[in-house]
Design a protein around this nucleic acid. Structure first.
Lengths: 358, 358
DNA sequence: CTGAAAGCGCTAACAC
DNA sequence: GTGTTAGCGCTTTCAG
């Protein structure tokens, strides 16, 4: 269990702290996997019979089943999934091209769970917010003949997918619509969420509420900023100095904060347009954040441990993911069905930061 | 862009907030994908020539290349990856069976990046801490004939993998060793990290330091508790009432805190054995946490936003993931190489909570 | 209920 | 240089 050994060594170009090589050099050699033919020979039956047993075909005599199964065990046979897929045409696998796997992403978790429940394998890849990577991943998924693909679109133009759609690739867009192609889509109710945040702060006595959010070139950034503007206008209030969409850099967010809070007619409360904006604002304000009423769009990990705990508009990410899979399965089952868009409601989680009065 | 429509509806058994169906029912029909034969016919060349062009074989005349490529464009041909894999025997894909994808997991991010850099596709699945699921995932990956698999082992006995290893399946264990089989392994220096945390607190004047951590039945829980005990003994101090491994429930952690901090000879500082323990402790203590010196094992998202910011022993997760892929690639390249274990050093991130003096 | 034979789409020996 | 041919391991008509 303990693998202690003092000195540093080089390994594959990495310097590693400690390393051990098993005594006796007990490496393995690559053996060839047995095929169905080998199993058939071992069991003394025909290839077809082995195939039937593997696929639980009930029309096989019990004695044959036993013979074949013991041969499978003896040879340690595992059917080659690729060959089955090639022959049958289906892959029972769906792809997900999301911004980042390996980062908290309840939608992806829901996709995995829903897919698993439907007997589908999930192949997830990170686009890393990179248009070229998104393109490469989607093309690669087409080549793998996945049964369908869910994508959080990044790029502007997706017209290169037209031919894939025409070739029958089922595709669902998540969180954002895709431009240039007509596909099933599932998104959050961005405008509704901004409305909830705004009215929550109004209800707590704030006459001037400011918004800081993502760049308007990003779809959700645009939708949320526009919704906030609509809120202000609907209340007959001024909009000047209160709406700050833009790049997600510390400088830009800092400037927006200054403009919103330290101008001639400062805002007394803040709506932040997404998780990264929320975190940038909190980091910028430091301890000062404790006194500023904030409602964030998107839930934040550990939001309950901050002081005050953070009130947020939370997306129903689990439902978004599950719906994406269901839309995809429906499309796979019936490629001719009408294209559909689903908008998932958001909800508010009240924790303290949004309930501070002026 | 806006898909507003008032009422709630039922969709695939889900109630959704808002939904729209595109006008005109512009669904698509499933078309058959063209094959290489179709491309060859279209281009007026032999099948072999198409294959060569697709694989960038330099021994093809430029005019042929052009003819074939325009035929590929015209027919929108995409080579079928499954057929290529079946024929060539390799999949250029590795699997990762981790506890949870879709949760902050820098090791998985590093695996993906390293794999991509090596031209490998990554198939990641969540074991969800479930032994049966781990088994199912690994068997499924064997059937898919992946080139190799990285696993964060969950289950106790992995002897069922012996036959897969014998059949030549390259396998690397990450974060934990696997019992019952001899495989390449990469882990953090748990003992070293505990030592760093302990000595950091000693250096800041704490004579009695307590440890609260995960269950000793979990490998890292055992290693870290044992290392902490060794630290105490090495300093000639008593160990009673200072070491609290156990289940990760709020009650158990609360009881451990009481025992450590409110006994006859209370500890003045705390080492928490993993991220979940750290969060459980912080949640339990509430505002009181601000006064208790804590060093946590594992970095925590938003650790810098807490007050005081959290001092942690951070695992070099990026290197763990990258090393896992490199070990796997080395094993794939040479199945007979000796089995190897790599221990990756940890480091300390000083943020405030660990520097409070008694 | 079982067995022989064809073929999924591609690559890799071989001839031409 | 290019074309023909035989499979990769499996499923699936079709006869027995």
């Amino acid at each position: 269990m303990a693998l202690r050994q003092g000195s540093k060594q080089r390994f594959l170009g990495w310097e590693v702290g400690q390393m051990r090589t098993a005594p006796g050099g007990n490496g393995r050699s690559r053996a060839k996997r047995p095929t169905m033919i080998d199993v058939a020979r071992e069991a003394g039956v025909a290839l077809r019979t082995v195939s039937r047993v593997v696929n639980n075909d009930p029309t096989v005599g019990p004695d044959y089943v036993a013979r074949v199964q013991s041969a499978i065990k003896a040879l340690n046979f595992r059917p080659d999934e690729r060959a089955r897929q090639l022959r049958t045409g289906v892959s029972d696998t769906i792809g997900a091209a999301v911004r980042r796997i390996a980062e908290t992403n309840p939608a992806l978790a829901a996709i995995e769970q829903t897919a698993r429940a439907a007997g589908l394998t999930l192949l997830a890849s990170s686009t890393d917010f990179d248009e070229q990577r998104e393109h490469d991943i989607l093309i690669s998924m087409c080549r793998q003949r996945l049964d369908g693909v869910i994508v959080e679109p990044i790029g502007e133009s997706h017209s290169y997918l037209e031919s894939e759609l025409a070739a029958g690739m089922p595709l669902v867009a998540m969180d954002r619509p895709m431009s240039g192609v007509s596909v099933d889509t599932v998104m959050s109710d961005n405008a509704g969420g901004i409305g909830m945040a705004f009215h929550h702060l109004r209800k707590h006595g704030h006459k001037r509420v400011a918004y800081i959010g993502d760049d308007e070139r990003v779809f959700s950034g645009h939708e949320r900023a526009a919704a906030f503007r609509a809120c202000l206008l609907a209340h007959g209030g001024p909009t000047d100095g209160l709406i700050h969409p833009g790049e997600l850099t510390a400088e830009r967010v800092g400037a927006a904060l200054d403009a919103a809070l330290h101008g001639p007619d400062p805002a007394t409360a803040l709506v932040t347009g997404n998780m990264d904006t929320t975190l940038a604002v909190l980091r910028r304000l430091g301890p000062e954040a404790a006194r500023l009423p904030i409602v964030g769009f998107d839930d934040v990990p550990l939001a309950d441990l901050l002081s005050p705990a953070l009130t947020v508009v939370a997306q129903d990410t689990a439902r978004i993911g599950a719906t994406a899979v269901e839309l995809l399965r429906a499309r796979i089952a019936d490629p001719a069905r009408p294209v559909q868009s689903v908008v998932v409601p958001v909800s508010m989680t009240i924790r303290g930061s949004g309930e501070i009065r002026p």
